[in-house]
Design a protein around this nucleic acid. Structure first.
Length: 846
RNA sequence: GCGGGCGUGGUGGAAUUGGUAGACACACCAGACUUAGGAUCUGGAGGCGAAAGCCAUGGGGGUUCGAGUCCCUUCGCCCGUACCA
C-alpha cells in the first residue's frame, strides 16, 4: 500500500475505461434528466471559470445517474465570434483554422477533467451541418413576420471604415484607430422578440427554480409600463406629435416637448435647417451603448416650433430636439414635466423652462418629486390621487379623441445583423428588381467562403467577388448576397435543442426534443442573466409558433455561478505579473526572476489583461482532475464568487491523500466483513458510527440537491475526520466501519469520480462505482434522543442544557428554572416571559 | 445614468431561513515523529481581558423576548446595460 495516491495513472486509466464502456452515452429512457452547462467560446485555453462550471454540472449529472435517471449531459462549441477575426488580423491565421485548433486544445483539457459528457453528441456552431438549420429557421421566421428589416445605428470607425462592437469602443474612440466613433445608420435584420414581450414576462412566474434576481432583471429589462399616448398639435402646422408617457397625471406640469434626434419628423425638419443638422451631427458623435448615451451630457435644441397643450387652449409648449429621448422606446417624443422628473428638471434649469409642481407628496418634498401624491395646480385633477388622476386623464383624452391608454415595453427588437465574416451567413439575396429574396431552401446552406483575406478593413464578405455576386433566384438577373452574418447569440439560442438529436437532418427530431426538453438544470455565469437567457426563451417560443415543437420554456432550473477570482500582482514598474512569476518570501511577495518586491492587489475576476489567471491545464497536470474539482466545490457556494489560492488547491490535494490512506489503510480490518450479513447487535461505538454514516448520507444528499456543494464537501470531511479515529475492536464495529467506508466512497463519487472508482476497486468490487445506486439513509438511525438547548436570559446567551428534543413546555420550564446558573441570575424575581422553542432555544425574561 | 447583487475572524466560508455567530477548511502558533515529505499526527486560536465578563456579521438607526438574517439609511465592491461571449 502506497501512502501517496497516484492520480496520474488512475485518472488516465478510469477515463479510458469509461470511454471504452461508453457509459456516459445518453439513452432516452424515463425518468430523464437533462443537465447542461453553457457551451464555451473556444478561446484556446480552459480557464478556471470553465472548470468551475463543468464541475458543478458534473456533480449533479453523476448524482442523478446514481439516482436512476437517464442523464443527458452534452458538450459543444459556440465557435463563431469576434475573437477569431481579431486573431486573423493580428496573427494572419484563418478564423476557421484558429477556431478548430482552439477546439482541439480545449477538448483535450476538458477530457482530462473526467467530466461525464456524452461526446457522441458534440456539436459545432461554425459547421454548416449546424448552421443550415439556423438559416432555415430564419426563413421560417421571415414567413411568419418574426424577422424584418429596418434601419438602425452602429458604431462607425471613420478611420478604419468599419463597424465596431461596443467592446471595441473605448471612451468614444475606436480601439485600434483611436478615432472618435460616430453613430451611423445601416439597414439591418431584426427578430421580433417584442411580439413575445408579454409572454416572456408572464412566463417568468413559471420558472420556479430560477434565481429571483435573474427573474427580476429580466422583468425590468422587458420593462412593461402602462401609460398613455397623447396628441400635441403643432401650432401653425398640420402635423401632430404623439407622446408616450407613464405619468399622464402630470400633464398640467408639462413645460416642453422633447423629441428624439432620430425621429422621422426631426429628420424631415432638418432638411434646409443647417443649425439643426449640426446639432444632430453633434449628438451622433458618440457610440451606441446605453451607458454612453445615458452618461453623455443632456442637450437640447430649440426648434422654434411649439405645440398646443391638450387641455389648456392658451398654453403652448416649446419643442426641443434632445439627445436623451430614445427613438426605440414609446413614440420617440416625451413631454417634459420638470417638477416630477429628475432628467426634465435638469433640462428645465439648463434651458430656463418653467417648473410647475402638480403633485403634492405626503410630506414636504423638495423638487423634483417623483413619487405619488395628491394633484394640485391641475384643473379637473385637483385633489385626486396619482392613480385616480391617471385614469381621469385617460378618460378625458379618449372622450376628446386626443389620446388613448397604452402599454409600452422597454424591450426592443433583437438586431441580428453583424458586418462580420466569422458568423452564420444570412440566407438572403438582394435584387434590384425583386428586392429582398430568400435563398431557396434547396440551395441551403449558404456556406461561408474559405478564400477570404483580412488585409483590408471591414467585412471580407463585402469584398469577395464570386461569393457576393450571384443570380437572383426569382428573375435570374445579377444580384447580391446579403454579406452580414448572424449575431452569435442566434447560434446559442437553440443549441440545447440540437443536443437532443445532434445528427438529425432537421434541426432536431420533435419527439426526441420533447422527450429531453426542457433542460432540467442549466448552469452558467451570472453575466448571461439577461441577453442569452432571454434570447433562448424567445427562440423557444418562436420555434413553437412555427410548429417546430410544443415547448415554451427551455430551462426548468437555472443556476448562475459566480466568477473565479485571484489576487493581482504588479512589479515596481507597475506591470502586471502572472501568479507563476511571483513567489512568497515570508509575508511578502517578490518577483521570481530578480527578487524585486511585488505589490499585491486585491482579488479580481481572472482575466488575461491583469495576468491573474491560473491555467487549468497546469493544475490538472500537477494535482490531477479530482483535486481541482474538489477545490472548485469546497470553498464557496456555486453562486458566489470563488477565490483561487495556491493554499486551497494544496489543501484539496492533502484531503485526497487522506481519503486514500483512510480507505486503503482499513482494508485488512474489513476484509472479512460481508455487508449483506448485518450483525444482530451493535456495540454503542458501532451504533454511534452508523448514526453518523446515515446522518452523512442524509445531509450530503440534501446538500447536493440544493447545490450547497461547499457544505457537501464539509460533511465528507467531518465524516472522514471521525473515521480516522475509529478503530474497530469486534465484529459489529468492523461491519459498521465497512459500511461507513463504502458510504464515503459512494457519496464522494460525484465530486471525485476517479478516486472513488479506484477505491471501489480496492474495496473488492467490479467497475463501475458510477453505476452504483445512490445510498439511502436508514430512517431509524436518524433520530436523536438528546439535543443541546441554548438558554438565554433576557435575550443574552447564558448557557446550554441537554434535553429531549420534544419535551413539553411546562416540563422544560420546571427543568430550566431549576438549573443553578439560571436560579443564580433570576433569583426570586418574577418571570415575565418564558419563550421555549423545542429543540432550539429558551429565553427567560424577568 | 439605469437595473440586479454582494459585504461575517488573518483568509475562503457555515449558520436547519428570526433562535448557541464563526461548522468545514486555508494560513498561523506550539509540540510529536521521521526512512526530511508536495509529509503525517496532537493541541491552540474572533477581539479585549488574569478571570468573571464585555465587544463583535461594512457604518448608522429601527422592529423583536431574540437580528448575520426583517425594515430604513449610508459607504464600498461586483455583474448587466441590447455588436465581448
Amino acid at each position: 500500500m502506497s501512502t501517496r495516491y497516484n492520480f496520474r495513472d488512475n485518472e488516465a486509466k478510469w477515463q479510458k475505461a469509461w470511454d471504452e464502456a461508453s457509459i456516459y452515452q445518453a439513452h432516452a429512457t424515463s425518468p430523464k434528466y437533462y443537465v447542461l452547462e453553457m457551451w464555451p467560446y473556444p478561446s484556446g485555453r480552459l480557464h478556471m471559470g470553465h472548470v468551475r462550471n463543468y464541475t458543478i454540472g458534473d456533480v449533479i449529472a453523476r448524482y442523478k445517474r446514481s439516482c436512476g435517471y437517464s442523464v443527458l449531459h452534452p458538450m459543444g462549441w459556440d465557435a463563431f465570434g469576434l475573437p477569431a477575426e481579431n486573431a486573423a488580423i493580428q496573427q494572419k491565421v484563418h478564423p476557421q483554422t484558429w477556431t478548430l485548433e482552439n477546439i482541439r486544445l480545449m477538448k483535450e483539457e476538458i477530457k482530462s477533467l473526467g467530466i461525464s459528457y456524452d461526446w457522441s453528441r458534440e456539436i459545432f456552431s461554425c459547421s454548416p451541418v449546424y448552421y443550415v438549420h439556423e438559416q432555415k429557421m430564419f426563413l421560417e421566421f421571415l414567413k411568419k413576420g418574426l424577422a424584418y428589416r429596418k434601419e438602425s445605428f452602429v458604431n462607425w470607425d471613420p478611420v478604419e471604415g468599419s463597424v465596431l462592437a461596443n467592446e471595441q469602443v473605448i471612451d468614444g474612440k475606436g480601439w485600434r484607430s483611436g478615432a472618435p466613433i460616430e453613430r451611423r445608420k445601416l439597414s439591418q435584420w431584426f427578430l421580433k422578440i417584442t411580439a413575445f414581450a408579454q409572454e416572456l414576462l408572464e412566463d417568468l412566474e413559471k420558472l420556479k427554480h430560477w434565481p429571483e434576481q435573474v427573474k427580476t432583471m429580466q422583468a425590468n429589462w422587458i420593462g412593461r409600463s402602462e401609460g398613455a399616448r397623447i396628441q400635441f398639435p403643432l401650432i401653425n402646422q398640420k402635423d401632430v406629435l404623439e407622446v408616450f408617457t407613464t405619468r399622464p397625471d402630470t400633464i398640467f406640469g408639462a413645460s416642453f416637448l422633447g423629441i428624439s434626434t432620430d425621429h422621422p419628423f426631426v429628420e424631415n425638419l432638418a432638411k434646409g435647417f443647417p443649425a439643426l443638422q449640426a446639432f444632430m451631427a453633434e449628438c451622433h458623435a458618440t457610440g451606441t451603448s446605453q451607458k454612453e448615451l445615458d452618461t453623455t451630457e443632456k442637450k437640447g435644441f430649440n426648434t422654434g416650433l411649439s405645440v398646443q397643450h391638450p387641455f389648456l387652449k392658451d398654453v403652448v409648449l416649446p419643442v426641443y430636439v434632445t439627445n436623451f429621448v430614445l427613438m426605440d422606446y414609446g413614440t420617440g417624443v416625451v413631454f417634459g414635466c420638470p417638477a416630477h422628473d429628475v432628467r426634465d428638471y435638469e433640462f428645465a434649469q439648463k434651458y430656463d423652462l418653467s417648473i410647475i409642481p402638480v403633485v403634492k407628496g405626503p410630506e414636504e418634498e423638495g423638487l423634483p418629486y417623483e413619487g405619488d401624491g395628491i394633484l394640485i395646480n391641475s384643473q379637473f385633477l385637483n385633489g385626486l390621487t396619482t392613480k385616480e388622476a391617471k385614469e381621469e386623464v385617460i378618460k378625458r383624452l379618449v372622450r376628446e379623441k386626443i389620446g388613448t391608454s397604452e402599454i409600452s415595453y422597454k424591450l426592443r427588437d433583437w438586431g441580428i445583423s453583424r458586418q462580420r465574416y466569422w458568423g452564420c451567413p444570412i440566407p438572403i439575396i438582394h435584387c434590384a428588381t425583386c428586392g429582398v429574396v430568400p435563398v431557396p431552401e434547396e440551395q441551403l446552406p449558404v456556406k461561408l467562403p474559405q478564400d477570404v483575406s483580412f488585409d483590408q478593413p471591414g467585412n471580407p464578405l463585402e469584398l469577395h467577388p464570386t461569393w457576393k455576386n450571384v443570380e437572383c433566384p426569382k428573375c435570374h438577373k445579377p444580384a447580391e448576397r446579403e454579406t452580414d452574418t448572424f449575431d452569435t447569440f442566434v447560434d446559442s439560442s437553440w443549441y440545447f435543442a440540437r443536443f437532443c438529436s445532434p445528427h438529425a437532418l432537421q434541426p432536431f427530431e420533435k419527439d426526441k426534443a420533447e422527450f429531453w426538453m426542457p433542460v432540467d438544470q442549466y448552469i452558467g455565469g451570472i453575466e448571461h442573466a439577461i441577453l442569452h437567457l432571454l434570447y433562448s426563451r424567445f427562440f423557444t417560443k418562436a420555434l413553437r409558433s412555427c410548429g417546430y415543437w410544443d415547448i415554451s420554456e427551455p430551462f426548468q432550473n437555472l443556476l448562475t455561478q459566480g466568477m473565479v477570482c485571484h489576487e493581482t500582482y504588479r512589479d515596481q514598474t507597475g506591470s502586471w505579473l502572472y501568479p507563476h512569476e511571483v513567489e512568497k518570501q515570508g509575508a511578502a511577495f517578490v518577483k521570481s526572476s530578480n527578487g524585486s518586491p511585488v505589490k499585491v492587489g486585491r482579488s479580481e475576476k481572472m482575466s488575461k489583461s491583469k495576468c491573474n489567471v491560473v491555467p487549468a491545464a497546469k493544475i490538472v497536470d500537477e494535482y490531477g482532475a479530482d483535486t481541482i474539482r474538489l477545490f472548485m466545490l469546497s470553498d464557496s457556494p456555486p453562486e458566489r464568487d470563488f477565490e483561487w489560492t495556491e493554499a486551497g488547491i494544496e489543501g484539496s490535494w492533502r484531503y485526497l491523500n487522506k481519503i486514500w490512506r483512510l480507505v486503503t489503510g482499513n482494508l485488512d480490518e474489513i476484509q472479512s466483513v460481508k455487508l449483506s450479513d448485518a450483525p444482530g447487535h451493535f456495540t454503542p461505538e458501532a451504533l454511534s458510527l452508523r448514526k453518523l454514516t446515515h446522518k452523512t448520507i442524509h445531509y450530503v444528499t440534501q446538500d447536493i440537491e440544493q447545490f450547497h456543494y461547499n457544505r457537501y464537501v464539509a460533511r465528507l470531511r467531518e465524516f472522514s475526520n471521525v473515521l480516522e479515529d475509529f478503530t474497530p475492536s469486534e465484529a459489529s464495529e468492523r461491519w459498521a466501519l465497512s459500511e461507513a467506508l463504502h458510504t464515503l466512497v459512494l457519496t464522494m463519487s460525484p465530486a471525485l469520480p476517479h478516486l472513488a472508482e479506484e477505491l471501489w476497486a480496492e474495496l473488492g468490487h467490479p467497475p463501475f462505482v458510477v453505476n452504483q445506486p445512490w445510498p439511502k439513509p436508514q430512517e431509524d438511525l436518524l433520530t436523536v434522543d438528546q439535543v443541546t438547548l441554548a438558554i438565554q436570559i433576557n435575550g443574552k446567551m447564558r448557557g446550554t442544557c441537554k434535553i429531549a428534543p420534544d419535551l413539553g413546555k411546562d416540563a422544560a420550564r420546571a427543568l430550566i428554572l431549576d438549573l443553578p446558573f439560571v436560579k443564580a441570575q433570576v433569583q426570586n424575581t418574577m418571570i415575565k416571559k418564558f419563550i421555549y422553542v423545542p429543540g432550539k432555544i429558551v429565553n427567560v425574561v424577568y
